[in-house]
């Protein structure tokens, strides 16, 4: 199986599929198969995240490693999804546009490339909802 095809099989890689606990309603992304609060009383089921969230904090990366150099300067933020879990991800917008508290929505984008002829990594980034 090719690497790209293998990645497609990972639920949280290309789709925002995590899990939730039906006992306490806590959501997990990336997915957990066990609820740390309810333990043996937890009931874990798959959950497809809506992809909406709010920026908790951010930085603008000016000096990046080779894989991300082409994107600089770019916004890297901690996003709190509406269902609760937090993610660290790029926000696709001008660096002077980003604000703490800004509403964002997930999009499927190219994340990085392994050199000229290497594998292209795709995954989740965010864009402003406005």
């Amino acid at each position: 199986m090719s690497v790209a095809r293998f990645w497609r099989k990972i639920p949280q890689r290309y789709n925002m599929i995590g899990t939730k606990c039906e006992t306490c309603h806590r959501h997990f992304f990336p997915p957990r198969s066990f609820c740390p609060d309810c333990r043996r009383n937890g009931r874990i089921v798959d959950h497809k995240f809506a992809g909406f969230g709010t920026i908790i904090t951010y930085t603008v990366i000016h000096t990046a490693n080779e894989q991300f150099e082409a994107f600089t300067p770019y916004v890297l933020a901690i996003v709190k999804l509406d269902e609760g879990p937090r993610m660290t991800a790029q926000v696709v917008c001008r660096p002077d546009e980003v604000k703490i508290g800004m509403r964002v929505k997930s999009v499927f984008r190219r994340i990085a490339t392994d050199g000229e002829s290497g594998i292209i990594h795709y995954g989740t980034k965010f864009v402003p909802t406005g």
Binding site: T59, V60, I61, H62, T63, L76, P95
Partner: peptide
Amino acid sequence: STMVADPL
């Protein structure tokens, strides 16, 4: 000095 990750 060069900006790395604003404001650092």
